[in-house]
Design a protein around this nucleic acid. Structure first.
Length: 266
DNA sequence: ATGGCAGAAGCATTCTGA
């Protein structure tokens, strides 16, 4: 069966309900990871998932961050375990959720929705936090791969992996999201045999997942590709199609990010 | 060097994001 997996930094779930509904109806994903839900768990609008036939697990906080994983009940996807945060690392920000999923054909795999810190600027304490977060996320990834080789690690990584993923590489040279230090962190995940799924099928320039709200950045396609779906070897072998739903950035009241997606033949 | 745009909190303005 073909399973469509999508990741989207929605920049507030409550402010984005119309855009979310339109996207779900158009794109019809089976598994969804969202970031920056910006809502506490007691106020999480789970009904919009239920109404669309999804089950959802969420981990949020007030004002900032917040992540969730949803999956279509009709696709016979079952969730067997949920983990919030990175085990063994204390973090007061809600940035990671992991679900162990199984299909009707008994295929089992782990799915992570992650919102990597922005970092602000090189040398800022927030940058140190970003590097520490990425190091601990790598450790968690290694643990998950030991438990089950099939892993889908998706989210807003806040890293543009190469200059091909940047509209103006000279403008962004060694700036936050594009620095060699951050790119080295990203490569650490590829060393664990995780693939940057988008580049399996698309080596074109000008392919972005985020555009600044200001200065008509989307109109000029002045963006960055910082949202990624990383796939372990077994899932890479089963990846049939990839894409970025940039039309979602044209919605009324859009998120500044577009959803990224893969099709997996599981 | 700074703003520009947007959301949350909360009611004026600040904090955060990328």
């Amino acid at each position: 069966m073909i399973v469509k997996v999508a990741s989207w930094n929605i920049n507030s779930l409550r402010a984005r309900q119309d855009s979310f509904q339109k996207w779900i109806s158009d794109a019809k994903p089976d598994i969804v990871g969202l970031q920056e839900t910006k809502v506490t768990d007691d106020q999480f609008p789970a009904d919009i998932f239920f109404e669309n036939g999804f089950d959802v697990f969420f981990f949020g906080q007030k004002s900032y961050n917040g992540v969730c994983i949803a999956f279509k009940k009709i696709s016979s996807i079952k969730c067997e375990n949920v983990v919030m945060n990175i085990p063994g690392w204390k973090d007061d920000q809600a940035r990671v959720i992991m679900c162990s999923l199984s299909l009707a054909n008994s295929f089992r795999f782990n799915v992570v929705s992650v919102y990597v810190p922005n970092g602000n600027s090189l040398g800022d304490p927030k940058f140190t936090y970003k590097l520490s977060f990425l190091q601990n996320l790598k450790r968690f990834t290694q643990q998950l791969l030991k438990e089950n080789e099939s892993l889908c690690l998706m989210g807003d990584f806040n890293i543009a992996p190469t200059d091909l993923d940047v509209h103006d590489p000279d403008l962004w040279r060694e700036k936050i999201l594009c620095s060699s230090k951050e790119r080295e962190c990203f490569k650490q995940f590829e060393k664990l045999f995780l693939s940057d799924s988008f580049r399996l099928k698309n080596n074109e320039p000008n392919q972005y997942s985020w555009w600044d709200y200001r200065q008509g950045a989307f109109r000029r396609n002045a963006g960055l590709r910082i949202d990624h779906i990383l796939l372990s070897k077994s899932l890479t072998d089963r990846c049939t199609e990839v894409g970025i739903s940039s039309d979602v950035r044209k919605h009324e009241k859009p998120s500044d990010h577009a959803p990224v997606w893969v099709n997996l033949d599981l």
